[in-house]
Simulated scan of single mutants.
Amino acid sequence: MRKLGVSIYPEHSTINRDKEYLDLAHRYGFERVFTCLLSVQRPKEELMQEFKEIIGHAKSLQMEFILDVAPAIFQQLNISYDDLSFFAELGADGVRLDLGFDGLKESKMTYNPYGLKIELNMSNDVDYLPNILTHQANKDLLLGCHNFYPQKFTGLPYHFFISCSKRFKEQGIRTAAFVTSQHGKIGPWDINDGLCTLEQHRYLPIDVQAKHLWATHVIDDVIIGNAYASAEELARLGSLRRNALELKVEFLPNTTLLEKTVALQEAHLRRGDISEYMIRSVEVRKKYAQHSFPRRKSTSQARGDIFIGNDTFGKYKGELQVILQEMPPDERKNLIARVVEEEHFLLDYIQPWGTFFLVAVEGKVTQC
């Protein structure tokens, strides 16, 4: 089960504001909370009191709570890697190691008596994880999570992100990465150009970022890196399908109710023997074989356009097609909708036999 998460930064906010945010996130189906101890400079006793309260609130909502730490924090708080009682007393579910130790120490941490999960930094394409596993780590308590990057142009490039992530996914380790809210202004540091893992996500709508991460099939959990995401952003993420890609579409004014039904009410399965020009959803044509799709004026076919075979298309009547490459007009097909521009790149993630869904952008139509 893929999860959604939010981040809070108590040293830059108030307990009440953080509680309100967690309440809102929980309402929209969020299950994880991330926070960072790397920038905390307060005395240990004061830190414990505040974090116990906010973690306790998260736990009352059945939300998993992970604390981001590094070796320097262990020294600052006089904590040993072989005694994680401090984090257990806070009520945390686990700790994320922003910087690692030597492999053996991480392995020993996975056998802590409190059942704390040990989350590893995924954003380095080195043999860090194999080193830990060589020391016979308890994989049941291992997680992986990428970094976020507050400075623009410093986020991970896609190919590097995939390479890093596969190291964990291939070992069966649960993975996570960050997306950024376009409304959140709070992070751990004074620079906050957005808190995403992938640089290409920095200015995209938050739901498009999440859909992309899930479409890669190397990320399980999606966490909003900055606080506070708007209620609209939380709602958009909370309403997403987590197990299949869905594309937002804008219908043409003359699209019929039947055509909208075919597009929106069906799970679309890409044909296995694929075409490089289009994604073919052929199962729907069998279901709607006895229905009529009157022919309309044909139009050229551009990437992101969605067509349905009309009554002149013989056995292909009712077939839904999403265009990948430009083609000339075909009078046997009706243009019914277009995938929104910012999601065109997601078309490349619909693999042979891949299931996808179409959802309407409320209140929007597009012209021929």
Rank of each mutant, 00 (worst) to 15 (best):
R285N: 11
D273L: 14
R285F: 05
V282I: 13
I308H: 02
A302R: 14
E326V: 09
G309Y: 02
E276R: 14
F313H: 09
I323M: 13
I306H: 05
A263R: 01
R296Y: 06
K333M: 11
A267G: 08
V282A: 11
V322P: 00
E283W: 13
Q301M: 11
R338Q: 15
A289P: 06
T312E: 07
M278Y: 13
E266I: 08
R285V: 07
K297Q: 15
D330I: 09
Q321T: 10
F307K: 00
I274R: 07
L264S: 01
I279Q: 05
G309D: 00
M278I: 13
Q301G: 01
F293W: 00
Q325Y: 12
Y277S: 12
G318D: 07
F293Q: 05
I308S: 01
Q301D: 00
I306G: 00
P294W: 00
E319D: 01
F307R: 03
I306C: 04
Y288M: 06
F307A: 00
E319A: 09
G272K: 10
E341I: 12
D305H: 10
G314S: 10
A302K: 14
A337P: 12
Q325A: 15
E331D: 15
I336V: 14
R270I: 05
G304Y: 08
P328G: 12
E283P: 10
Q301K: 11
S300A: 13
G314F: 07
R270M: 07
N310V: 01
R270L: 08
G318Q: 06
G318I: 03
Q301P: 07
E266F: 09
H268W: 09
A267C: 10
A289M: 05
K317W: 02
F307Y: 08
F313R: 03
P329E: 12
G318W: 05
P329N: 01
V340H: 02
K333N: 12
D305S: 06
G304K: 06
E283R: 12
R295H: 07
D330N: 15
E266V: 10
L269P: 05
Q301N: 00
I279K: 04
E341D: 15
V284D: 04
R280T: 10
P329A: 14
H291S: 04
E341C: 05
R338H: 07
Q321V: 13
K297S: 14
L320A: 04
K315R: 10
V339A: 00
A267I: 14
K297P: 03
N310T: 02
P328A: 12
A302F: 14
P329C: 01
K297T: 15
R271W: 14
S298M: 06
R303V: 02
L264N: 03
T299D: 05
D305E: 03
E283D: 12
K297C: 04
I323R: 03
L320N: 06
S275C: 13
G272F: 15
V339M: 04
L264W: 10
A289N: 02
V282D: 03
D273C: 10
A263P: 05
A289Y: 07
I308F: 00
R296G: 02
K297N: 09
K315N: 09
P294D: 03
G309W: 03
K287G: 06
F293R: 06
R280P: 14
R270D: 00
K317G: 10
P294A: 03
N310F: 07
Q325L: 14
L320F: 09
I306M: 00
S298A: 15
L269K: 14
K297G: 06
V322Q: 04
A337R: 05
Q321E: 12
V340A: 04
